[in-house]
Amino acid sequence: MTQLLSEILTKYNYWIYITLMMIGLYAMIAKNNLVKKIVGMNIFQTAIILFYVSIGSKKGGTIPIIKHDHGAASHVVHAAEYINPLPHVLMLTAIVVSVATLGVALALAIKIYHRYQSLEEDEILAQIREK
């Protein structure tokens, strides 16, 4: 019982990230509206980014900006005092790329709306089948 409790306490963050990811996946699969699908894609993306950033966090670590004083910069830096900066770097670029891909996705949605006068997937498919 205590083992289960400690398991929950150390892992509940991961479970909530997976819940978020699944909310995004469900929206991408089951929603009918194209803008809702795009929102689902973005939720999925941010959940993955959240997971990556959480990998980098360390108990007892501070933000990854090295304490320094001008001139005498020769004191030793201990890696355990700072949280892991590598996931931050990878995810920082991923966020900006995600907004660029969001722009392309919305451009496609606008183009589809102008052609079929609808954002609903089933109505668009019905119009395509009629032709």
Binding site: I18, S57, K58, V76, N84
Partner: peptide, 27 residues
């Protein structure tokens, strides 16, 4: 997730290979 290291564990694999090199040498 059962195989993951605990959340914010300082000795997790992601924090022990390449990132200490970055933190200690970058400045």
């Amino acid at each position: 997730t059962a195989d993951f290291p605990p959340w914010a564990y300082p000795q997790s694999p992601a924090s022990t290979h390449v990132s200490p090199r970055y933190i200690e040498k970058s400045i």
